[in-house]
Design a protein around this nucleic acid. Structure first.
Length: 501
RNA sequence: UCCCGAGUAGCUCAGCCGGUUAGAGCAUCUGACUGUUAAUCAGAGGGUCGUCAGUUCGAGUCUGACCUCGGGAGCCA
């Protein structure tokens, strides 16, 4: 019967397990600890470890193949790179029949042995095992969700805690990390400071959508004010508060003191939008530069995107090759094309001209004063220009109050970066730095200046021209990886009705 | 929120015009075979056909409501 060898499945802490616990949590590099020769699979496969060296690899089983020649092949992944390593387990191992032959996808093991050139095809190196210790069995192999076969992305969303074990989500995770590191590196190298703007805010009129309320009031017994409304003076902060929808207004204060700053943090929108492009919780990047106009802003946006894409191509070739192979054929080539040419730049008015003369029909009408629809944006970047294009100077009434009014009095210094395959990827503007004009704009938008005294102060005390832009990090991840749904670009997505895990 | 589509084995799916005991591939288990590469071959187990109601002699199949998921639109990053 089969169950007998399963006995050791709930062992006490083994020696290997205790060793893992002792392993420095922040090993300086992938080379790992010299104690026990623990190595990352990435280093073993890349030839950074001498052939013949004793090695220990730790990870999760992807597949097991048995050979009657007296050995089994165990493919092991540990997250350090896309490829798993092949562990060759000879039948002479003490637990070969009792344990090794029963390994299934998802089992956690520690394999000690020797790194050797592979006798088989498909990999340069493999681990010839002297010992294999099973740290964690898979409770019920038949119902273990992650099988060595293609799964639908829809199914994997239902097992968001296990999907990082798949090729796809391992790759997305590494690429996302690479991009986040590149974001910080890009700004740091250019003298920007990372500013952490508040997550809890009182600004409720940034025009960026519905907000999540933050409150400690007892919902079943709300305090009332004189007029019968909810008395937020009794709430935690003594006033009504929400989760941030943007750090831009707050970061402007730091921009007008430190010159070049950016935010990179979580952002929340309570819109009931159920699409492949929206999340209720996402990460936004918002640089803000002083002594800068809209052209400086567009330059920064172009440099920024190219830097991120280049970093991914340079550092994550293994994962990108997988995306190009399995998810989106042009995953790599379109990034290369993106890097190859300068962005086009056109005025909004020019864009309207182009669209009106376009040899095709649009579902939504085109006309000066109307905002560009997704179909318009795609036509401009994909068909008319054929590469990323920055559209600048939009009609003032379709853009936010803080955008700088141009001399023509009917446009503002706003820009959208449109890219083939995605449409709008970045939105930005030069900010209105003149107090009198800002006040007029706020009145025009029906905003109460009393709520923006601190923002107005920035125009009263040493105001200078400044500009910035914002982009949703996950949308960038979607584009880079060739994903179809933004819920696959973040570990545990939050969306209307979706807050499991 | 609106429009459209889909829910059948652990996963991916087939199932005709309503009619006998609901099938396949993968996965799992057993056996054979092999330095194997998502191995191969043979066999076995595995199903309240999303839920509830209705039509019918008879419903996986037709009708309605609901639930869940997906795609599109709007909003936007």
């Amino acid at each position: 019967m089969y169950p007998a060898p399963r006995e050791p499945r709930q062992p006490g802490p083994s020696r290997a397990f205790r060793a893992i616990m002792r392993d420095p949590p922040q090993a300086p590099q992938h080379a790992g600890s010299t104690r026990m020769n623990i190595v990352a699979i990435r280093d073993a496969l890349a030839g950074r470890i001498d052939a013949g060296a004793p090695v220990t690899v730790r990870g999760w089983v992807r597949t097991r193949r048995d050979s009657k020649a007296g050995l089994s092949f165990v493919n092991l992944h540990d997250g350090s790179c896309f490829e798993p390593i092949q562990v060759v387990a000879p039948a002479t191992l003490a637990n070969y029949e009792s344990e090794v032959r029963h390994l299934t996808a998802g089992c956690a093991i520690v394999a000690r042995g020797t790194l050797v050139p592979s006798q088989g095809k498909g990999q340069a190196f493999e681990v010839q095992a002297d010992a294999i210790e099973v740290l964690g069995w898979v409770d019920d192999p038949e119902t273990y969700p992650i099988q060595p076969k293609p799964h639908s992305m829809e199914f994997l969303r239902e097992v968001a805690h296990l999907r990082p074990r798949t090729n796809t989500f391992g790759a997305v995770t590494r690429v996302r990390h690479c991009m986040a590191q590149a974001v910080h590196r890009f700004f740091h190298e250019r003298g920007f400071y990372w500013v952490n703007t508040p997550i809890i805010t009182t600004s409720d009129a940034e025009g960026a959508g519905q907000m999540f309320r933050v409150s400690t009031l007892d919902l079943a017994n709300l305090p009332r004010d004189e007029r019968g409304g909810v008395d937020f003076r009794r709430d935690f902060f003594g006033r009504e508060t929400f989760l941030t929808v943007s750090g831009q207004l707050a970061v402007e204060g730091y921009c007008l003191a430190l010159g070049k700053v950016y935010t990179f943090g979580p952002t929340f929108r309570a819109e009931n939008s159920n699409t492949t492009r929206h999340l209720a919780e996402f990460w936004m990047i918002e640089p803000e530069i002083a002594f800068a106009d809209l052209d400086d802003d567009a330059d920064l946006a172009e440099d920024f995107l190219k830097y991120i894409f280049k970093a991914v191509l340079d550092e994550r070739g293994d994962d990108m090759a997988f995306f190009a192979d399995k998810l989106e054929k042009t995953a790599v080539s379109r990034l290369e094309a993106f890097l190859a040419a300068p962005f086009a730049r056109i005025d909004y008015s020019e864009a309207i001209d182009i669209l009106e003369k376009a040899p095709r029909k649009f579902e939504f009408p085109v006309g000066w004063g109307a905002d560009l629809q997704t179909e318009h944006e795609r036509y401009l970047s994909e068909e008319h220009v054929g590469r990323p294009v920055v559209v600048m100077n939009y009609p003032e009434h379709i853009k936010a109050f803080y955008m700088r009014l141009n001399d023509d009095g009917r446009t503002v210094a706003a820009m959208d970066v449109l890219a083939p395959g995605i449409g709008e990827i970045i939105g930005g503007s030069q900010r209105e730095e003149r107090l009198d004009v800002l006040d007029r704009r706020m009145a025009q938008f029906g905003l109460d200046p009393a709520h923006y005294q601190w923002y107005r102060d920035l125009r009263r005390y040493g105001t200078v021209p400044h500009a910035g832009f914002g982009l949703g990090f996950e949308r960038l991840v979607v584009y880079v990886c060739g994903l179809a749904n933004i819920r696959d670009a973040i570990p545990y997505p939050r969306a209307p009705g979706v807050a499991e895990f």
